[in-house]
Simulated assay, not measured.
Amino acid sequence: LQERREKIEADERDLQNKLQDADARYEKYAGLLQALEAERETLKQQAENEARQIVANSRRTVEDLIAEIRREQASKNSVKKAIAKTETAKIQPKQPKIQPKQPKVEVNAGDKVRIKQLNKFAEVISVKSHGRKPIQILMGTMRMNLDYHEIDSVHPKQKNANLSTSVLDIQYSKANTVSGELDIHGMRAAEAADEVRKYLDNAVLAGLPSVRILHGRGTGVLRQIVREALQEYPYIANYQYAPFDEGGEGVTVATFKE
């Protein structure tokens, strides 16, 4: 009986030791799990911070570009007016032994013009009164001579003296790709807010005088998002609902500052 009792006590001590060992292992693994969770949260927070920084940097880049255009007093409609002007200009063909007529489009030294074939803007260095390819331009570090039919979108020096050719390239590109209307039907709130802000940036760069944003009536959530974005945007002159026959309260029309 004594031996049996001693064996039971020994078994109890062994079991107690195993329980203590199990508790120690549990605490160890629980600590490791907690450390991993903390590290995961840290990495997640770092990723979110980096994403927010990337978005903020992109917004600052766009805002800086818009500010540059504003400072240089670039007209929103200058690209469209110049294109319309040059499209209606008729260049008289050169006749043998006859001095060609002066083209209707006027180009002077210091003006900025778009080279049709390259789809890039360049600065006019000089203009001769006669001869083939009388217009000498500077594009970057490259000089070349062009004829009148090889250029369009003339930006006179006196109106846009400080407007760089790179800004004109961006304006012209946006003017031909940005629509005057944005449809955010069916978008989630966060997605719609981002789309509206990006669209307003592109519309300003394109020189659009006004835009239409289609949000629908629905519950009013998208409409409120549009209103808040327009209130925060610095280049909006005014906004209101579209006329009843053009969408009414389901469409907001925003006009940009001159």
Rank of each mutant, 00 (worst) to 15 (best):
E68H: 09
S75D: 02
I83L: 08
E41Y: 00
A47R: 10
N77V: 02
L15W: 08
A35C: 00
Y26E: 00
Q95L: 05
E63S: 11
L36M: 12
I54W: 06
P96V: 10
K81F: 06
S78W: 08
T86F: 01
E48K: 12
I66N: 03
K94G: 07
P96G: 01
A56S: 08
Q73R: 11
A30N: 12
K28D: 07
E41L: 01
Q53H: 15
E27T: 01
I66R: 05
E48W: 09
S75K: 03
K76Y: 11
A10M: 04
A35H: 01
Q34P: 00
T42N: 15
E72H: 14
D23T: 03
L32F: 09
L19G: 03
A51C: 09
Y26Q: 01
I66F: 12
Q53I: 09
E87H: 04
Q53E: 15
Q16M: 07
A10Q: 06
Q20A: 06
Q16L: 07
D14V: 06
Q46E: 11
G31R: 03
D14M: 12
A35V: 00
K94M: 10
Q92K: 11
L19I: 14
T42L: 15
K90N: 07
S78Y: 04
E9Y: 09
V62N: 13
D14G: 13
L33P: 02
E72C: 14
R40V: 09
L15C: 05
N49G: 07
E39D: 09
L65A: 12
Q53R: 15
E50I: 14
E50Q: 13
A89L: 01
L65G: 14
L33S: 06
L32Y: 09
K81S: 04
K76L: 12
N77F: 00
R25V: 04
R59N: 04
T42S: 15
A51M: 07
I69M: 10
E9P: 07
D11F: 12
K90C: 10
L15Q: 06
E72N: 14
N17Y: 14
A51D: 07
K81Y: 02
R71D: 11
V62D: 15
A35W: 00
S58W: 03
K97Q: 10
V62T: 14
L36Y: 13
K85H: 06
K44R: 15
R59F: 10
P96W: 07
L36E: 14
E41H: 00
I8C: 07
Q45H: 13
A22T: 12
E37T: 01
A22L: 12
A35P: 00
K80S: 12
E87N: 02
Q45T: 13
T61A: 15
S78N: 02
Y26K: 00
Q73H: 14
A30I: 03
L43Y: 11
K97I: 08
E27V: 04
I8F: 14
A24P: 01
Q45L: 11
L15G: 02
R71H: 10
